[in-house]
Design a protein around this nucleic acid. Structure first.
Lengths: 266, 266
DNA sequence: TTTCAAAGTGTATAAATGACACAATAATGA
DNA sequence: TCATTATTGTGTCATTTATACACTTTGAAA
């Protein structure tokens, strides 16, 4: 366990009484790299088990602030596109993961250097209602950092998800469904890209989210017509062809659009 | 206080330890009557203060089941269209209602015939994160029934909301915004009407939700083309004109539509 | 100069939208 | 029977949007 993680655990244990009871946050953090949608997952120690980065809500902290905090802790990123999508409150969502999962979790808890194992147990094993947030982040800018339960924090291809803790697969599914809906009335996909990007990059993002091919020229027309992209100098690719233009996101025009309302569909 | 309410309070106090801590449910229950959208609100005792019907979640009960239970308790209705729309978790959402509101609440609590006032206080005055559900119900079929905090439970015109408890006005606003979005991809409005209704009724519902006039003949064409309305005998209105057809909702066709996906916009 | 992908433009078809007009249909009551 | 009335169905026209595809121009590199 790294020093950083020891500190996190210490902080956690010392503030365990300051958490809002029975409520957690789970973040579906999506990034885009290499033409694929990636999700930030946490690999558990001593087990081939992965989970969504999550956390708890302090008594004096709003739900949303808690989500931002978790995001910051896991990715180092500050202000980001973050959107609540659903609250999961089934009774069985954690009491009955698979039997092997229960064993893995048990193992992990036992190996933690805890000051007060009983109090830890009482906290971690209560029933949690969890609120899901999804965040779209610039892959390049993140510095994934595991929490004290994780061995490492990693970007995983959405198409190749490993075994996930509890109901985390269902949470991801719901997040994606919501994302697709939001895409129809908010040009959400932009937050997934670095500051400067090509139209083609953006199209690939849309295709990755919507899971279907889009027509290049129509896509370009539509997006540019919305008018919140600024064109910059070209990028010299070194390839034997015309270099694509770079664009960046014009937040001011975008906010005007938001107030006047967007009708948008692909 | 009625016998019924006394029973409810008794039940509540006896099971106060069985509630999931710090979490509540608030229901935005909408009905349609007299060409207006109505919302079911609870008037508090001894005060001109209204609130959304709400409740708490039992430890052994899912969030959704709790919402259904609250709905059943307030309206007598069983299976209904119910949809989670947001979870509200601001710190200040209840710690600082207006000063007068705090006094009103205090007054009410003191007048309750409680067995264990301290325990009641501890429960009711904690910080709650609340999950909002909206329900669309057939106005005619409901039998509103107040809980032990309410003097009466009543349908109020959405256009003329009274002073509301805490952040309940914001919760209602959010519910309506969500409803408008949902209307674009689910023919949600149907649940607001009695089993048999005229196309005109349905159009009025849409107009009430969307807050704008729709063209009669275009509306009719669109709705009928979707194919989940069954036409019945005419209704004799007693007026000196052709009677309108009655329609009912064909659940089977509707479910087929759901799986194949609906593209729908007004 | 050739080659290649990017970028821009054209455009034909189909579909949906919105705004109206108009005729046919029943129910009532004078 | 006939005038009155609101419902219902249909037509249509202008506009916009979606979808698919073709073709040209551009600019960087070999």
């Amino acid at each position: 366990m790294s020093d950083d993680q020891k500190k996190q655990l210490e902080e956690f244990e010392s503030r365990i009484d300051q958490f809002h009871p029975g409520h957690s946050i789970d973040c579906v953090i999506l990034g885009y790299h290499d033409r694929h949608l990636k999700i930030l997952l946490l690999k558990w120690k001593h087990a081939e088990l992965w989970s969504l980065p999550g956390g708890f809500v302090y008594t004096h902290e709003s739900l949303e602030d808690a989500a931002y905090r978790v995001l910051k802790e896991r990715t180092g990123l500050g202000s980001i596109f973050l959107s609540q999508f659903h609250t999961f409150g089934d009774v069985e969502r954690q009491t009955a993961p698979s039997a092997p999962q229960a064993v893995m979790m048990e193992n992990l808890y036992q190996k933690l250097p805890l000051k007060d194992p009983v109090r830890f147990r009482n906290w971690i094993q209560q029933r949690f209602i969890t609120t899901g947030y999804f965040a779209l982040v610039d892959f390049e800018k993140t510095e994934p950092r595991p929490d004290f339960l994780g061995e490492r924090c990693e970007w995983i291809d959405l198409q190749q998800l490993p075994e996930l803790l509890m109901d985390h697969d269902a949470i991801i599914k719901k997040a994606l469904a919501q994302l697709r809906i939001q895409l129809n009335y908010l040009p959400v996909g932009l937050s997934l890209l670095p500051e400067k990007f090509t139209i083609q990059d953006l199209q690939k993002v849309y295709e990755a989210i919507l899971q279907k091919k889009l027509d290049r020229s129509n896509f370009q027309r539509k997006i540019l017509k919305l008018g919140f992209l600024n064109r910059h100098e070209k990028q010299m690719t070194g390839a034997a062809n015309k270099a694509p233009f770079l664009y960046s996101f014009d937040e001011r025009n975008y906010k005007e659009l938001l107030t006047s309302g967007i009708g948008f569909s692909m």
